[in-house]
């Protein structure tokens, strides 16, 4: 078994309105920053032990499917690194 960190990034699907991101963008613009767009995402770093990077990735994907993301509104991706 090897120790891995699986990083799960959960973001709204393209086209789904994100009022928090819009508000954040407006606040940045009020501070004088120039920007075209802003997208926000949630990032979860999961430390786990697994037989292989693939197995760690599979388990983290299942976590995303079952809890971390809501498939109705979210897409997600998983990256795995050895700890």
């Amino acid at each position: 078994m090897t120790g891995y960190t699986a990083t799960v990034t959960v973001r709204l699907k393209h086209g789904v309105l994100d009022p928090e991101a819009e508000t954040t963008q407006q606040a940045l613009e009020r501070l004088g920053f120039e920007l075209e767009d802003l997208r926000a995402a949630d990032r979860f770093e999961v430390d786990l032990e697994a037989e292989s990077a693939d197995a760690a990735s599979e388990r983290a994907s299942e976590m995303a499917e079952r809890l971390l993301a809501n498939p109705t509104i979210h897409d997600y991706d998983v990256e795995v690194d050895e700890r």
């Binding site: 789904v16 309105l17 994100d18 009022p19 928090e20 819009e22 508000t23 809501n70 109705t72 509104i73």
Partner: peptide
Amino acid sequence: GCESGLTEGAFTTNESA
């Protein structure tokens, strides 16, 4: 209800934030 699949769709952040 929506999160558990009893009903479809999702209730998320109000447009007004």
